[in-house]
Design a protein around this nucleic acid. Structure first.
Length: 286
DNA sequence: ATTTATGTTTACAG
DNA sequence: CCTGTAAACATAAA
């Protein structure tokens, strides 16, 4: 799935085109992707206006005049593609053979807006979901997430405290935990640990203070860089215009097994940790 | 043809 | 509570 930078990119693009729009049409062909009854979606979506487009962790949050929020999680292969009224849309870099336009056979939810534009939700693996959350329940629903890495609330002392709740776990597993820090996934955890020069398999309890600070700084640096690049596309990620992100071209270790480390020219290694492909430089990362 | 890998989260077993 | 593993599912590469 899209991690923080990918969802942030989609959020920014959708905010530009959706704010103030009225939803005029809703269709779903795979109801299991909905976390509320279909009727609730029709009631709360159709006829209401979009008042905000936000992001928390990897969740996209669309505020509605009906007093509800549409929370969309893309999980691993979800895509949100917006299409203006006139013209076709062609998506780039789609890995599924023959799927180059939207809507397509993986489009399971469709919205239409008052200006005639469309929003399509595609999800090859069908792990993603749409959920309607009333305004007064939203805070409660989001409070399980840790700090946003690009916000001022991401402080090193608090970060250390959250890490220390999992003393025996390896640092990679803990950084994937959304309650520790929000929005990191497999790519950016590997990238951040490379920048911090810490091996993904290190147990939290073994980390020195200087290493915790280095990890904290690396996360901010990597996420900032990835947002600027509009995310990473190597599998199914595309933005709301159907375009790919460019972080793939800037990456340090992810997907670079058996290639030379940019820093020391040794070969990047790939192992399995937490059930995920894990990339690191055995000579740079201690 | 079969196995393995893929950007996530969470339920469950120990 | 903490930690590690499997499973939800579809597709492509090995």
């Amino acid at each position: 799935m899209p991690e923080l930078p990918e969802v942030e990119t989609i959020k920014r693009d959708l905010a530009k085109v959706l704010l103030g729009q009225k939803i005029t049409f809703f269709k779903v062909t795979k109801p299991k992707l909905l976390r509320n009854p279909r009727k609730t979606f029709i009631d709360k979506l159709v006829g209401s206006y979009i008042t905000s487009v936000k992001r928390r962790a990897k969740l996209l949050l669309i505020g509605l005049s009906s007093g509800y929020n549409l929370a969309i999680h893309l999980k691993m292969t979800g895509q949100l593609v917006w299409r203006p009224r006139v013209g076709k849309i062609r998506t780039d870099g789609h890995p599924i053979t023959g799927v180059v336009q939207v809507p397509n056979k993986f489009t399971y939810i469709t919205l239409k807006f008052s200006n005639g534009s469309w929003l399509y939700f595609n999800d090859v693996r069908q792990f993603g979901y749409w959920q309607l959350i009333p305004d007064d329940k939203l805070i409660n629903q989001l409070q399980t997430y840790g700090p946003e890495p690009l916000s001022a609330s991401f402080r090193v002392a608090d970060f250390k405290q959250r890490l220390m709740r999992h003393p025996k776990a390896n640092i990679k597993a803990v950084l994937l935990n959304q309650a520790v820090v929000a929005g990191l996934g497999n790519i950016y955890v590997d990238e951040s640990l490379f920048v911090a020069r810490v091996r993904p398999s290190r147990r939290v309890v073994s980390l020195k203070q200087s290493e915790i600070v280095a990890i904290w700084q690396a996360i901010k640096k990597v996420i900032k860089k990835a947002v600027k690049a509009r995310g990473t596309s190597f599998n199914t990620y595309i933005d709301a215009a159907g375009k790919t992100g460019s972080y793939w071209q800037k990456r340090y270790v992810y997907g670079r097994a058996n290639l030379k480390c940019w820093r020391c020219r040794q070969m990047i290694k790939k192992t399995v940790l937490v059930g995920r492909g894990t990339h690191y430089c055995a000579s740079c990362q201690k």
